[in-house]
Computed example of a mutant assay.
Amino acid sequence: MFMSTVEPLYMEHWLRILEQKFQLLNVTDEQKVRFATQQLLGSTSAWWDTFNVMQPVDHHVTWKLSEFLKLKQGNMTMMEYVNKFNHLAQYVGTHVDTDEKKMECFNHGLCCILQEKLHIGGYRTFGTLMNAAIAMEGVQRDSPLLWRYFSMTLRLSGSARG
């Protein structure tokens, strides 16, 4: 069973256990989604129900789509997150068929601080957003003082536009 958690390792552990069961039982991708969603509890189950109601009648969620929609950066480096995001994005069709949708999904999985800083930047393409996220992580890691300056510059430029 799975309940909502902020701990990414718990979710990864739960997914690993499910994958082991799927492999043992030779479960198809469509069956994986049905099996996994029966394991959801609390707000996670409510989220899934809401998500399903909003889908077109003939829409079928695949296991990769479910994994993509739950993707969070968590403890991953930005490059690890970018690689995982891009890998899963190739399986989710209309969820990322425009730069705007791709940017929204990418941003959704980032930590709140990066979401705010990237939103202020006003990036217009997924490529520029992704490159900015990678650069910001590098600046934050390599030079905390420069990171503070960079953050202030973004805030000032964001307020000047608004």
Rank of each mutant, 00 (worst) to 15 (best):
L15V: 13
L15P: 00
L15N: 01
R16V: 01
R16M: 03
I17H: 06
I17A: 04
L18A: 13
E19T: 07
Q20H: 10
Q20L: 10
Q20I: 02
K21Q: 10
K21T: 04
K21E: 12
Q23D: 15
Q23R: 08
L24C: 09
L24W: 14
L25S: 06
L25P: 00
L25R: 10
N26Y: 05
N26H: 13
V27H: 05
T28R: 12
T28V: 09
D29E: 15
D29C: 07
D29T: 11
E30L: 09
Q31Y: 01
V33C: 06
A36Q: 01
Q38K: 06
Q38A: 08
Q38L: 07
Q39Y: 07
Q39V: 01
L40W: 06
L41M: 11
T44G: 15
A46T: 12
W47Q: 07
W48L: 05
W48F: 15
W48T: 05
T50K: 09
N52S: 11
M54P: 00
Q55P: 02
D58G: 12
H60E: 09
V61I: 09
V61N: 03
W63N: 08
K64D: 08
K64G: 03
L65V: 14
S66N: 11
S66C: 14
E67Y: 03
F68M: 02
F68R: 02
F68H: 08
L69C: 06
L69M: 12
K70V: 03
K70A: 11
L71V: 05
K72S: 13
K72E: 10
Q73V: 10
Q73C: 14
Q73M: 15
M76E: 04
M78W: 06
M79R: 07
E80F: 02
Y81H: 04
V82S: 01
V82G: 04
L88E: 02
A89M: 11
A89F: 07
Q90G: 13
Q90N: 09
Y91N: 08
V92M: 07
G93Q: 12
G93H: 08
G93E: 13
G93S: 12
T94G: 11
H95F: 11
V96C: 13
D97Q: 06
T98F: 02
D99V: 01
D99I: 02
E100H: 00
K102I: 07
K102D: 08
M103V: 06
M103N: 12
M103Y: 08
C105W: 06
F106M: 10
F106N: 01
N107C: 14
H108L: 10
H108T: 14
G109I: 06
L110M: 11
C111K: 13
C112T: 15
Q115C: 12
E116G: 11
K117Y: 14
K117G: 09
L118N: 03
L118P: 00
H119F: 12
I120C: 13
G122A: 05
Y123G: 00
F126T: 05
F126C: 07
G127A: 15
G127H: 09
G127E: 12
T128E: 12
L129I: 09
N131L: 11
A132I: 07
A133D: 02
I134A: 08
I134P: 00
I134C: 05
A135C: 08
M136S: 10
E137D: 04
G138Q: 04
G138I: 01
V139F: 05
Q140Y: 04
L146Y: 06
W147P: 00
W147V: 02
W147A: 08
W147G: 00
W147Y: 15
R148T: 09
Y149S: 15
